[in-house]
Design a binder for these strands. Structure first.
Lengths: 246, 246
DNA sequence: CGTACCTTTGACGGCTGTCAAAGGAAGTGG
DNA sequence: CCACTTCCTTTGACAGCCGTCAAAGGTACG
């Protein structure tokens, strides 16, 4: 589930082929890998927004508390993702982040981002692309939350995770890691835990998939994607056309 | 509702004070103001993503079609906003854009963005901040759509528009432009038109506000903001701390 | 082995979507 | 200035999805 070499370079290499100089600049960002245990917090909302993290291995999530006390999960982070990009222009962080599994984080100060702005137009564009992709992901989920049934929401989320895992590691099969409880699915999709359970058993009885405790096993990918109304457009970014190198 | 001078400079000036050089670079982006009529389309989804727009005056919105044919509205653009920032890393646009009122758009090719990346670290950071803010706005709306009642959704949306108008023009009073039909509110919040009507009459009978055809009149701002569960955090970005100029 | 967390099931109620129809408001053409 | 079309809003009836409450069974972890 992790990356052997630098995870961020691996991730960015998918956008565009990097020069050695750029790789060197990037590898600065993963200088101090820090192991963090399951459920441990990375930061709380309201703290000073002074550094970002790259997620080298493991899963994490960001969350907010709503007025009446319950938790709303915003995003799931997978290996290779950058955590904190969304809010680095804010003085104080807008949401908290915790680990979903154990994993390795690499902190880097915000000043590094500015260095990148200064020293590499290409990496700047790549950062922008990463931010865009994250935003497109949010948009897609919002469209999903707007109108459809709990069943479609759940199906959509599972397909999203599958697609993102496949992007990181193309050899992912129809059974893959899924360390997310039904309660958290509810907090992510705005559905009550009870109804997540009902929906899942429903989907499972139709033979589409089986959710185990820490994995998901998909039996009928085609029908699942169809039910999820999943659009793959936003996976197909194309930065190369912008950056003609010579 | 429009801006006298360059709208984008006006908008960016709120993030950080710009040098004359930077203002000159920015004003390149508004070279060819184009008037577009109400309801006219700016672009369709799927077209080549070769230029962005700044919205100099008037309102616009982006939208998607869902599988079964109905429309989902993603974002409302107000004067000073940049249209297309979200998806400029994609070869083909992910969603369509139309004018809500008549207005003036200033197109600029994507290459200009790369020029900015190259020539001004400050403006790059400002663009990043604009993108972040837009993403934070999306996030806030997503949190809103996740769990709360139609009444809260509608209240939240009206407060959002009020806050954004006030940011552009601090003299905005308790009656302000609101050229959005109930049908579009429904498409934006994922509520049926019928229920938007029910919800609005409900809110109006409680004396919170009155929606007229093209304006909204707010009677009790405090209670409205309270009911909307509106968080103002993401309005308070702080780029200055990042860019210490000398 | 005990505690805490996760999942499942049933009953019940309410919010919200759908269908249908009618009344207003705005814009168009004569 | 008036007729006509089109779009927008309102109202009522009805059904269904989903939240809430409560309780019990399963699973992991110390």
């Amino acid at each position: 589930m992790g990356c052997n070499e630098s995870c961020i370079i691996h991730n960015f290499d998918r956008f565009i082929t990097l020069t050695e100089d750029e790789k060197a600049l990037l590898s600065h960002l993963e200088k101090e890998p820090t192991h963090i245990k399951k459920k441990e917090r990375v930061w709380e909302a309201g703290t000073l927004s002074d550094q970002l993290y790259t997620l080298k291995s493991g899963w994490a999530y960001s969350y907010n508390h709503s007025g009446n006390g319950d938790v709303k999960v915003l995003e799931i982070f997978l290996p290779g993702d950058i955590i904190g990009l969304r809010e680095f222009t804010y003085k104080y962080r807008l949401s908290g982040v915790r680990m979903l599994t154990g994993g390795v984080l690499c902190p880097f100060p915000i000043q590094c981002v500015l260095d990148i702005f200064d020293r590499s137009q290409t990496l700047t564009a790549v950062l922008f692309a990463a931010s865009s992709r994250q935003q497109a992901l949010l948009t897609e989920r919002m469209l999903n939350l707007m109108q459809c049934s709990a069943r479609t929401k759940v199906a959509h989320f599972i397909v999203e995770i599958y697609m993102r895992l496949k992007r990181i590691n193309p050899s992912v099969g129809h059974t893959f890691a899924f360390p997310i409880s039904q309660q958290m699915i509810g907090e992510l999709l705005g559905i009550s835990t009870v109804h997540v359970s009902r929906t899942l058993t429903d989907i499972e009885q139709d033979g589409l998939l089986k959710k185990h405790r820490r994995t998901v096993e998909i039996f009928d990918m085609e029908r699942l994607i169809d039910e999820a109304e999943f659009k793959t457009d936003y996976m197909n970014d194309d930065l190369g056309r912008l950056l003609k190198r010579n």
